[in-house]
């Protein structure tokens, strides 16, 4: 069965007639972290009319002639058990943290470590966005990195990027990291 799928996938790419490669990116994080805002910012869409995600959103972004299919899945507690259904064949995990929500740093850390233990995400590069830096109460990215013990992650490439999804600040820096470390390595 798996064989057929993989085989089909290569055929499908040929059938589509596209020369560009595709990357599957999963965008996760607690509820209200700013995942959908980030997704819309990436797709250059309006970020002012966003409501809590009950299901999931998909956007395709082109980066260095590679098509990035970004899957943003709702982060509410009751939805989180569904995350693992979306992890297969993932090329990059983007994890979004509300830098001003100190009360839930522990919770978000636990969710992240659960994710990195997932079989489907083994070795998958990790980009963390320390979001909401526009808020005065936001913790700096370095502090969050320390709290998450990111320096202990040896099994994958990782990066933490301060950003404000609402203003777009720092988002492009994260994309540049993706471009340099994942897209160009895949080519």
């Amino acid at each position: 069965m798996g064989e057929v799928q993989k085989g089909l996938f290569s055929v499908i790419e040929k059938l589509k007639g596209t020369t560009e490669q595709e990357l599957r990116i999963v965008l996760l994080g607690l509820d209200n972290a700013g995942k959908t805002t980030l997704l819309k910012q990436l797709a250059s869409e309006d970020v002012n009319t966003i409501t809590p995600t009950q299901g999931f959103n998909i956007k395709s972004v082109t980066c260095d002639s590679m098509k990035l299919n970004v899957w943003d899945i709702g982060g509410q507690r009751k939805i989180r058990p569904f995350w693992k259904k979306y992890l297969a064949n993932t090329d990059l995990l983007i994890y979004v943290i509300d830098s001003a929500d100190k009360k839930r740093f522990e919770e978000t850390g636990l969710e992240l470590s659960d994710l990195t233990d997932e079989e489907n995400l083994r070795g998958v590069p990790l980009l963390i966005f320390a979001n909401k830096q526009d808020l005065a109460t936001a913790s700096p990215a370095s502090e969050i990195a320390e709290g998450l013990n990111l320096h202990t992650y040896r099994d994958r490439e990782w990066q933490i990027q301060a950003c404000s999804a609402v203003s777009g600040e720092g988002v492009q820096d994260g994309m540049n990291w993706i471009s340099n470390n994942i897209v160009n390595k895949k080519k």
Partner: peptide, 24 residues
């Protein structure tokens, strides 16, 4: 709607299985 429901994924999985079975 712009947003996808979680149930779509379930249906998509079932669809994959159906197609696989038919092709096999």
């Amino acid at each position: 709607e712009d947003e996808n429901k979680l149930s779509y994924t379930e249906v998509h999985q079932q669809y994959k299985h159906l197609v696989e079975r038919l092709l096999e």
